[in-house]
């Protein structure tokens, strides 16, 4: 999966699920060797998160929070509880059939990741580029 940044710069690092994938954002190819249905990409420079995006299989990509996507990685706690609830309620009914019918995630039956992803870096509104941080709050 090729990863590019919306501002075209190449001096950021790209992380995939918290691990360094590319030292620089120029010509970044991320190898998605995961069984999960999505990966979380982050744009980081000097330890500062500049953006992030969840990339789903079958090309279903969603940015979380626009320019602030890095602040809200997928919440394992909430999802975990949901999954636990699902398992407890449906496990007795579906144990045999689901094990028999569910295709392996490693088989690619859940789709593939897109070949290219562009991560938004920068303010949502171009008028914020020159925001007067050195002035008092109005």
């Amino acid at each position: 999966m090729a990863v590019r940044l919306s501002d075209g710069r190449d001096d950021y690092s790209i992380y995939c699920d918290g691990k360094l994938a590319c030292e620089t954002s120029g010509n970044c190819i991320v190898k998605t060797m995961t069984g999960s249905d999505h990966v979380y990409l982050q744009v980081i420079k000097n330890g500062i998160i500049y953006g992030g995006v969840n990339v789903y299989r079958e090309g279903n990509t969603s940015a979380s929070g626009g320019g602030l996507s890095g602040w809200d990685p997928p919440s394992p706690s909430g999802q975990g509880l949901q999954v636990l609830g699902d398992v407890l309620t449906t496990f007795p009914l579906y144990t045999l059939t689901s094990f028999a019918l569910t295709p392996s995630r490693h088989s690619g039956a859940y789709g593939t990741f897109p070949k290219e992803v562009v991560i938004k870096v920068g303010p949502r509104d171009s008028s914020l580029v020159n925001y007067p941080w050195d002035q008092p709050i109005k």
């Binding site: 330890g47 500062i48 998160i49 929070g65 320019g67 602030l68 602040w71 920068g122 303010p123």
Partner: peptide, 19 residues
């Protein structure tokens, strides 16, 4: 522990501090 995130406007402080 430490955390760093860019804010492009003051409202961006909210999700950062929430996290």
């Amino acid at each position: 522990w430490n955390y760093g995130h860019i804010a492009y406007e003051p409202n961006d402080f909210i999700p950062i501090i929430s996290y």
